[in-house]
């Protein structure tokens, strides 16, 4: 639905071209929540701003549906932009307009709707984001979470098919982040809206994205379903994000395990296997002993998963691992 074809983008800074994106090929499907994660400066904002051409690619095409938007004339581009909503880290609301006026703004810019129709639509949008009683306040009178809800209502006003989120929760506290993410996930489900969400926080992607691309220095380091990418990270950058999110330092871990005897593996359970008493059963069967060194049980979007780092001693360890693998667990060797 949104397709980047061999995209290059560089910015001209003090007479030299500084590359921001270096050969991006990506396809974002209609109706999915697509996360783009990367460290600051990786090129996330540049990438997302190509979708509504706030930035133009230096080379390559951006397709929406079958249209190459880089080839649109000014009027067609404006019409296309009306079908794409965008929310921002710092909300970017108009300070001189009330909440209701902010939400009405894209509608009145687009034209074609009567005052009464706009009023009705604004009321419905404000109700949807839970801000009905704040309609006549100015942005300065709202909390960060409320401002982002206004941003969301405003972005949805023209009934777009795509919603772009540039670090939309990065200025919010964890609790507000949760509620804004939930709102986004609900809207995605209710309206079938495609959401492209960029962030430097893995938790945000893990909570609501279907698929994720890991961006590093202007290239896609890794891409896939969120569970796959985060449970079995292939690229060093992805591993770093996973460890950062768990507040662990890989170097420290290996040191910690130096005095732990036995064979150390990381077991990953997903779906129903997460809640089954597999480990105990296998241990009894094969006579191994195990100790759990680290672990977490959590969800990725709607899928429960568990990840345990376990040291096995005694008994028939290869048989135990084979049995676990047979039950659909993913096994990674940490130390043989």
């Amino acid at each position: 639905m949104i397709q980047f074809k061999n995209i290059y983008k560089s910015y001209r800074v003090a007479g030299t071209d500084v590359p921001a994106l270096q050969g991006i090929d990506l396809r974002i499907e209609a109706g999915e929540i697509f996360g783009i994660i990367g460290h600051s400066g990786a090129g996330k904002s540049t990438l997302v701003r190509l979708i509504n051409l706030l930035e133009r690619p230096s080379a390559g095409q951006v397709l929406i549906g079958n249209t190459d938007i880089t080839a649109l004339d000014a009027a067609a581009l404006r019409a296309q932009r009306q079908r794409i909503g965008m929310i921002f880290q710092h909300f970017n609301l108009l300070s001189a307009k009330t909440v209701a006026q902010n939400v009405a703004f894209p509608l009145s810019l687009a034209g074609g709707k009567s005052k009464a129709e706009i009023k009705q639509r604004v009321a419905a949008l404000l109700a949807r984001v839970g801000l009905t009683e704040h309609a006549d306040k100015y942005p300065a009178q709202l909390s960060g979470g409320q401002k982002q809800r206004v941003g969301i209502a405003r972005a949805l006003a023209t009934e777009p098919q795509i919603l772009l989120c540039d670090e939309a929760t990065s200025a919010l506290d964890p609790q507000t982040t949760q509620s804004v993410l939930k709102l986004l996930a609900d809207i995605n489900r209710e309206l079938g809206l495609t959401i492209v969400l960029i962030t430097h926080e893995m938790d945000v992607v893990r909570r609501i994205a279907d698929r994720v691309a890991v961006l590093d220095a202007g290239t896609v380091a890794e891409i896939g379903p969120v569970a796959e990418v985060f449970l079995h990270p292939q690229h060093p950058i992805t591993r770093r994000f996973v460890l950062e999110a768990e507040n662990v330092d890989e170097g420290e871990l290996v040191d910690d395990y130096a005095h732990v005897p036995g064979r150390i593996v990381r077991l990953t359970f997903t779906g129903d296997a997460t809640y089954e008493p597999l480990l105990g059963a296998v241990a009894r069967d094969t006579g191994v002993d195990f100790s759990i060194l680290a672990g977490r049980i959590d969800r990725i979007k709607d899928t429960p998963y568990g990840q345990l780092t376990v040291a096995f001693t005694g008994g028939d360890i290869p048989a135990a691992l084979q049995q676990l693998a047979g039950r659909g667990l993913a096994i990674e060797e940490v130390r043989a």
């Binding site: 706030l54 581009l77 932009r81 965008m86 921002f88 970017n92 810019l109 687009a110």
Partner: peptide
Amino acid sequence: EATQAMGA
């Protein structure tokens, strides 16, 4: 930017 993104 936000206004531009609305197609203004």
